[in-house]
Design a binder for these strands. Structure first.
Lengths: 686, 686
DNA sequence: ATGTTGGCTTCAAGCCGACAA
DNA sequence: TTGTCGGCTTGAAGCCAACAT
């Protein structure tokens, strides 16, 4: 974590709190009144499925793609006998969240019924509540944290090094008056089995550790370095623990276990073709994208005039499955993937070339709803030098977003009924988009909106990003336009939902930057920089997209976070929120209690525990502030500093420099934190 | 093990050798050229199945009893729809010896084809070679030993106390010159997995132990006290290890795992009725008798005029499955077990009452081929006092045996063809034997011979003998008459076969008395006392059946061995044999190398490592010898000594005192060993 | 002859601060 | 802040002779 990275796009932090801080030691069995039958806690399931995964909710209208279903099967599937169309409009009847008994791998059983001819392909019921957890109140009091196990974590006889953020936001509050501070943490796995860990805060410097009980967990779950462990605080305050294993190279036993069988695919396709209800098993972490795609997303994506040469971006999961990388590419052709069998299928319709072909060597064809057209824009500056293979993306222009809003309106309110299944008359196909049986609604950009139906993909490509996960975010971009339209209430606009299937729930996750800080490795970028913009901040014109030109990324366009711990949280904003980079005890004391008066301010560098005092009243402008800070901490690029400075006001509000005039800033600022890393979007706690 | 037991029936020892004494440390994978496809080593399979189990060989004619098959199913089976006859004559097409992966429980897959109407129900091919191991030469070079695990054996952190006999006859020869004597023993389980044990000879008094590796074996196999471990020396000299678990009271998971399903029974019965080939799974240790019974046995047993009041005996397995108990009973009725469904089925045709009803409370009906009529005879004397609930049986009169011989001839050579399947016309049933579709060949006693088709049964009855195994021995008695007819070659007549399905193989096993000695608990009885009689000895008139009247058994009629270790071996005699009680290195040096001349002799007491010299030429008779030895070693019961003195001649032969005249004895004897324990027949290593 | 006990040895699991990145 | 290392503690596994049966 070089300080040179300080010029990364300055992520801004919203406010939020967590549920009850103290959970009862042995969490009661969670009985959720969810509509969907669920064997695994839905929140935990989602956390394990990965940051991008969503599952269509009950009542949703989706298109079922037998082609995609077949891709999940272990063996080749011949569906020619089923006479199933390339896509079947269906209604989601039920979703069950399951987990493999042996590996804890999550999967879903999705029960579908083909829509009758003439039946409108639109969602019914509370389809916005994306399956699990997304309550009506949009206040899922859950927060989760994923960590990739280090060698130390996974080695025998050792403990688990708990990232501070995880300890402070996920685990029950620890009584630091104890010497040493220690408690038992009870975590329930996907099978409902409770595990007990000794959580202790010790060492020099102090750190959180899981000791007793951890080794047993590691051996029982057969965890290896590189596997991910997900800790989640449920709505009830109970701790849940899930796993995301890395692909075992040769251990086919793990891969093949319980996987989808070719016969299952054929049976599903046959039933689908016959209009009968059927059930599919969906492994969200398989190396193929989802094959039950929300109808709106598909339809919208097909409105785009996909043409050769069109540039686009596509979201992928980072190696630890908790963040997102955007990769840029261009359409190389528009041609059905299997012209002989399904000449009119949109599945993997697009042939693509990547700007980073080496990392996506195996990805030649993608489905339209997974990508988002972009217009060429000047690259955004990514101040920190990225370590070797890490790249960062271009960002779509803002005007795209307004288009998205339109699309949203179109689909949400004005989408007209239906279109029967039977495909349109055959026609030639080539680099022009075949006329699929979708009405011509919405604009081209509507495809992006439609892509809110996140579909998750995993790719094995370059070993450097061997476990890169690709998937699609809600709005197709880091910021959901729909969310941006959120009512202008005091509620902080938390536009981005990462790892949540709950569009109505204002997430935070990535922006809880406290934990997202890059520990040594550079990484987090635009996505997060933009994610933490508040409406207020946007209105104030403060540069959510920093313009300081630097580090053009050597022509690369993807970004990935560092592989270390990261949070994937959903936290409901409230008026009393504190940013995550506040010290843990700050929730109990207001900035005024720090004993600092107006004009007096304490300055911290994110990576340093020691603060220094600064008299703001001696300064006359933000430029002077930057110069002063630059001198205080020997930061050479003062120009980049602005976007890295966040502060707490006396009222407890978290703000970015530039959110208010300098005069107001001087009066209100009590605590300044200089974010030390570019990838880091927020961080800056003591 | 009181010395008082020293007057137990003095078993005499024949000569025999073992295969190679030293097996190559890592035994090569045993590839047997057996006819039957076998997944588990057939010898090991039989050893695990229990001392009484046999499986019909390929080519054998058997009767398949759907009723009995249904008894093996976990759930009730309704076969009324199959219209299968009560018994179906079949030919054995194939036998596969299998083992449950999880529990090592053995079972067999027996493939059968119903005989065509008119086809003679007789064995074809080498049906005498009872399935596995029984080679044409009748020389299975295998020996096995079963031990019931003690608490110490099964407790964690402890080792396995190896009975001396097992160590000396099964395990590779141990070099006692090492200090301490120690070696690695490699044993292959039913799945072909090799296990390594440290075999050490230490402690005071010295004893054989398995230490390192044993604990791992116990935990991996989930062994509990009471379970049986079977060690077997294969023909190739490799050591094999198998398990016989005791019934787990409530652990249904073990019982139900992989058991026969009702549907399987129905399917088999349907195919059988249709005359199609079918396969059955047979669990030899299930609580029901075999349902594929050799045709000759069934036919013969039906020649008996079963009438109410007829007294009979029936063989059961002892608790450790290695020995046999005979229980006496009387026919209470002759009536089909299920008159409604199978009015003419001989399955469990006999209603019986037992002379020890408390021990066989659950056994009310038996099939005719499992029992053997007896006439009342005076009890034979069982010298050692039996511990509380143990009983001993009456022994059938000898004249029975000659009858058996006749039966043997009848069935082996003169049995005429066939009788079609369709049952005879219906008729009343009651206490008279229904006329089953069997020709009237052979005498009444032929039923006993037919019972050479051992069928194994396990009964849960009184907790005191909760795991009592019932089954039937070859000749229906402790001594197989067929064996007694063995050619009067130098080959020692080893009449009894225990735990062997190989009638043509000259066994030894039980008579290796070395191990069979009652360790603290009294036990070994007539069965063994008689078993070790050689033809020669019988002719010489030495008391194979001791007549000292003692302990009349309190009016009971069953005998059981003590529950401790026991052997179930088959050892091929050769002219160069050494008795098992020879010191392990004695095979490498001839008695002449001991440097002793005629008349000079070294005397050992079995339990003592130090020998003393004795000048035999100073003695004039065996009586004097006994007196002298009695004085030398302070043995008070000189009268009993004779049967405890064995010796090695200068030619390397092992003999019992009395085998040759005293004058010859004086000249040839070079090394005398006094067996120190009553039950102990040989032993006497340094 | 061998089952059982308790002592002792040995070894690894696992807890810890130090240190470094 | 947290990954890794080596030292130390602790407890269990397991080896053993003594003793009992």
């Amino acid at each position: 974590m070089s300080v040179a990275a300080a010029c990364a796009p300055p992520p801004r932090v919203g406010m939020f709190t967590f549920g009850e801080r103290m959970a009862p030691p042995p969490p009661p069995p969670p009985d959720r009144p969810e509509g969907a039958e669920s064997c695994v806690d839905p929140q935990l399931w989602l956390a394990c499925a990965g940051s991008m995964c969503t599952v269509p909710p009950v009542g949703a209208a989706v298109y079922y793609f037998p082609q995609g279903h077949a891709e999940q099967a272990s063996a080749a599937v011949d569906l020619s006998a089923t006479r199933v169309p390339p896509l079947v409009p269906c209604r989601v009847l039920a979703v069950r969240f399951m987990a493999e008994p042996e590996t804890d791998d999550v999967f879903a059983r999705i029960r579908l019924v083909p829509l009758r001819p003439g039946e409108p392909v639109v969602d019914v019921g509370d389809a916005d509540a994306l399956g699990p957890g997304g309550g009506d109140d949009g206040q899922p009091k859950t927060a989760s944290f994923a960590k990739t196990l280090t060698q130390s974590d996974a080695s025998n006889g050792s403990g688990f090094s708990v990232p501070r953020f995880c300890a402070e936001t996920i685990f029950p509050g620890l009584d630091y008056r104890l010497r040493p501070p220690v408690q038992s943490v009870y975590a329930r796995d996907v099978h409902g089995v409770d595990w007990t860990f000794r959580h202790i805060y010790r060492g020099t410097p102090r750190r959180h550790l899981l000791t007793t009980g951890w080794s047993n967990f590691v051996t029982t779950k057969k965890l290896l370095p590189g596997d991910n462990v997900v800790f989640l605080r449920g709505e009830d305050g109970g701790i849940h623990v899930g796993l995301r294993r890395t692909k075992r190279g040769s251990l086919s036993r793990w891969d093949a276990y319980g996987k989808v069988q070719a016969a299952d695919v054929a049976a599903a396709a046959t039933l689908a073709a016959a209009g009968e209800p059927f059930e599919v098993v969906y492994y969200p972490r398989a190396s193929s994208p989802g094959f039950c795609v929300r109808a709106a997303a598909v339809r919208a994506s097909m409105q785009v005039q996909w043409t050769s040469g069109l540039r686009f971006k596509m979201a992928f999961e980072t190696e630890d499955a908790s963040r997102i990388s955007w990769f840029m590419g261009a359409i190389a052709g528009v041609q059905p993937a299997d012209p002989a069998r399904w000449p009119r299928s949109p599945w993997r319709l697009l042939q693509v070339t990547w700007e980073e072909p080496e990392l996506l060597r195996n990805v030649h064809r993608v489905s339209p709803w997974l990508v988002e057209p972009v217009s060429s824009m000047p690259n955004l500056h990514m101040p920190p030098p990225f370590s070797a293979p890490r790249k960062k993306p271009r960002i779509p222009p803002y005007n795209n977003e307004s288009i998205l809003l339109e699309g949203q309106q179109l689909f949400d309110t004005a989408f007209p009924p239906n279109h029967p299944l039977p495909p349109a008359p055959s026609h030639g196909h080539g680099f022009t988009v075949p006329s699929f049986p979708f009405p011509e609604y919405g604009s081209a950009a509507a495809g992006i909106q439609g892509a809110r139906q996140a579909q998750f993909v995993q790719i094995l490509s370059d070993p450097h990003i061997s476990n890169l996960q690709r998937s699609l975010l809600f709005g197709g971009g880091g910021i959901s336009p729909a969310e941006r339209r959120a009512p202008p209430t005091p509620r902080i606009s938390t536009d981005l939902i990462i790892g949540s299937a709950l569009p109505s729930s204002p997430p935070a996750g990535a922006m809880k930057g406290d934990d997202v800080k890059p520990a040594g490795r550079p990484g987090v970028v635009m996505l997060f920089g933009r994610a933490i913009l508040t409406e207020e901040q946007m209105k104030s014109g403060s540069s959510g997209v920093p313009s300081s030109p630097r580090a053009i990324n050597r022509g690369s366009f993807s970004n990935t976070s560092d592989g270390s711990g990261s949070d994937v949280t959903q936290v409901s904003p409230t008026k009393t929120n504190l940013p995550s980079w506040m010290p843990p005890w700050s929730g109990d004391s207001s900035p005024s209690e720090w004993g600092l008066e107006a004009g007096q301010c304490k300055v911290f560098v994110e990576s340093d525990a020691v603060g220094r005092n600064l008299d703001l009243s001696a300064l006359g402008s933000f430029e002077e502030l930057y110069a002063r800070l630059s001198a205080m901490f020997r930061i050479d690029s003062a120009a980049c500093l602005g976007s890295h400075v966040v502060y707490l006001t006396a009222a407890g509000e978290a703000k970015h420099v530039g959110d208010e005039p300098f005069s107001a800033f001087v009066k209100s600022a009590r605590r300044i934190t200089i974010l030390s890393d570019a990838g880091s979007d927020n961080t800056g706690n003591v």
